[in-house]
């Protein structure tokens, strides 16, 4: 139901792609993955282009990730959420809290710039 892909980009970044639905039975796995990544102390590029469902709990997981990454002075950049997921960010005003870009390249520029 949810696929989590992990990749290193250079020395400083980890690229994570979530594909499918972030919902009850997949929350735990995402939480664990995020905890593990935070412990690596790198910037995170979170690709949501193929995430097709999320609810307020899922948004809560992202907020938590953002809080934790700020604590270790790294950045979280969200890449290309689909129209529906993007709509949830906008309704809840989270689009103002997160850095959201359209492509991986933009995200890389943002981090290195």
């Amino acid at each position: 139901m949810l696929d989590i892909k992990k990749d290193y980009i250079g020395q400083e970044c980890i690229y994570i792609k979530l594909t499918g639905k972030l919902i009850y039975d997949t929350e735990e796995e995402v939480n664990l993955t995020f905890e593990e990544i935070i412990s690596l102390e790198k910037n995170i590029l979170l690709d949501l282009s193929d995430l097709n469902y999320i609810n307020s709990s899922g948004l809560g997981i992202f907020i938590n990730l953002l809080k934790n990454i700020k604590k270790i002075n790294r950045r979280l950049v969200i890449i290309n959420p689909g129209a529906e997921v993007r709509m949830l960010f906008e309704i809840t005003s989270l689009d103002k809290m997160f850095e959201i870009v359209n492509t991986i390249d933009e995200a890389k520029c943002l981090i290195s710039g």
Partner: peptide, 17 residues
């Protein structure tokens, strides 16, 4: 009021929307 980085209230906000 729904506060951006607090956890609660967001669900109802989505429902109303």
């Amino acid at each position: 009021e729904v506060v951006a980085d607090e956890d609660s209230g967001r669900g109802l906000l989505l429902i109303r929307n």
